[in-house]
Design a protein around this nucleic acid. Structure first.
Lengths: 112, 112
DNA sequence: AAAATATACCTCAGATTCTGATGTATCAAG
DNA sequence: CTTGATACATCAGAATCTGAGGTATATTTT
């Protein structure tokens, strides 16, 4: 993850939210979606993405389904019920983080 | 740093901004200030704070001045010119991060 | 006066998360 | 037939944090 730095810990929140919104996605698709949504300003590093997906799956927040696409493979990820609950927590934590930053860094910040 | 999680990377931004606003502070004072400002919701972990202060000093973003307070020592930190420039960058990155999260996570988030 | 809490600094092992490089393989386009 | 896109992956090393522990002085409570 790079270019206009993300704070460590935010990647999993993005993954969960993308899957919550789009139902089912594969890793590479996520990198493209984020590029597209941020006009190339934000790039998900695949070296961070794939391990993160594996971890979320191991934690039972995602399920995976391997689907052949032509002669290649795609691993489609979907969010589980547990994952949906975790998404709520993650978003609440992010809001809390932003509120604290607003308090600590002053009103100039974050109102952009 | 804990309790209502901060994202990794935000601690140095907080330190720089506190010093920019308050002119001169020592480590322990920063932990108390953050507690006070966030009504105890956010606690800076000293195990993260002190190494961060040492690193910022090593990078030339802060200067330190050891001052006896009674029979104890305080290490007062001040921000350098270089540190002020870096603060501008850090705040811009934070705003950028928040804007990207707004785009990726939807309008419900971040608007409180 | 003794014990507990607050002030004030610090280190260190281990965990987490990320970067950047590298690797494999298929597919489309020029 | 090579370049670039698609699609997955791993790994060494860096950065940052948590949680625990340590030293010492000062103040407050019992």
């Amino acid at each position: 993850m790079n270019k206009s730095q993300l704070y460590k810990g935010s990647l999993t929140t993005i993954i969960l939210k993308l899957l919550e919104e789009n139902g089912r996605m594969y890793g590479y698709e996520m990198t493209q979606k984020v590029r597209e949504m941020t006009s190339d300003e934000l790039t998900i590093n695949e070296g961070a993405l794939y391990p993160a997906l594996h971890k979320l799956e191991a934690e039972g927040l995602l399920t995976v389904e391997v689907v052949p696409a032509g002669n290649r493979l795609r691993k489609y990820y979907s969010i589980t019920l547990k994952g949906q609950a975790e998404t709520v927590n993650r978003l609440a934590e992010l809001e809390s983080f932003i509120e604290h930053m607003r308090i600590l860094l002053g009103p100039k910040v974050i109102l952009g």
